[in-house]
């Protein structure tokens, strides 16, 4: 019995690890590419070990452009991302509460509008949006990159709505009897129980915003204000040369913050699962 158990466990871990390696291989290839020279990358060898590992991609890449180093670009990315993520969590949870917990007439309309905002490709919305911000005199500032995130993001509003569906209505009723208003129910009952949903929102929104380069491209002008995602794209110029080594090196560094955020918040998703008795 015990041996059978150990065997099953080993097979499980073996499977998860081998499959995990296959999954992560392309990422490892990119990381190893950051230590290869351009010619070796372009030859497309599949080996993960560089012929002559070198760090120069990191120094060339970090040097950035015309005296602006990647320290500036990463700094810009970091604060935009943190503020936008914060905005998403706050606003989306408020809106989700309204759309999932409160019964009122217009709610279906707003829900439909919310889905509709996701159904038109960015390419056709981009220019009209730009013209609005231009009219407001807010281009070349960070406002267009941040403010919309304080107005709720459809993807996360709907996600939180679904999680709220899982919170029993009896809790609201009990709270109402205890004298809670609809406002305090949100702060005292819903928010604390929404933790896993909020954590997923933070993890996902963080890396989406971190990777987003279209917004920074449209709204930022001065190279000093570029984000890392936009700066990394500067290495790939279709019309002249592409410095893949430097691009891979900076992409690798760019992975670190997102990964750290993931590791930090992931604990809140795993914690407690062990007690759910799912031992197979």
């Amino acid at each position: 019995m015990n041996m059978k158990h150990t065997l099953r466990k080993t097979i499980y871990h073996l499977f998860v690890v081998i499959f995990g390696f296959v999954m992560i291989y392309p990422v490892l290839w990119m990381i190893s590419g950051s230590f290869k020279d351009n010619a070796e990358i372009l030859r497309g060898t599949l080996s993960l070990i560089p012929q002559e590992p070198k760090m120069s991609n990191y120094s060339t890449g970090w040097r950035g452009f015309s005296g602006i180093t990647f320290a500036t670009f990463f700094g810009n990315s970091l604060w935009i991302t943190v503020v936008a993520t914060l905005g998403t969590v706050i606003s989306s949870s408020l809106v989700a509460y309204s759309l999932s917990r409160i019964r009122y007439k217009a709610k279906k309309l707003w829900f439909t509008c919310m889905l509709a905002t996701m159904m038109l490709p960015g390419q056709v919305i981009m220019i009209p949006s730009f013209l609005i911000w231009h009219g407001l005199g807010l281009t070349n500032t960070y406002v267009p990159l941040i403010l919309p995130y304080f107005c709720g993001q459809a993807f996360f509003i709907y996600q939180m709505m679904q999680f709220m569906q899982g919170i029993p209505r009896e809790l609201d009723e009990a709270a109402t009897i205890d004298g809670c208003s609809k406002y305090t129910i949100y702060t005292h009952i819903i928010l604390p129980l929404l933790k896993p949903s909020i954590v997923t929102t933070i993890i996902i929104q963080f890396y989406w915003k971190w990777d987003d380069y279209m917004g920074p491209l449209l709204y930022l002008n001065r190279p000093q204000s570029y984000t890392a995602s936009l700066a990394i794209k500067l290495f790939a110029d279709a019309a002249s040369t592409t410095d893949y080594g430097a691009m891979f090196a900076m992409s690798t560094i760019s992975l670190i913050p997102v990964f750290l955020i993931f590791l930090f918040f992931n604990r809140y998703l795993v914690q407690g699962i062990g007690t759910s008795g799912l031992k197979g």
């Binding site: 309204s98 009122y104 707003w110 509003i157």
Partner: peptide, 16 residues
């Protein structure tokens, strides 16, 4: 309900 609903949905309505 109508007021509470709209107050909580206000960020979205404004942005939309």
């Amino acid at each position: 309900n109508n007021t509470v609903g709209h107050i909580f949905a206000a960020p979205f309505i404004f942005g939309f």
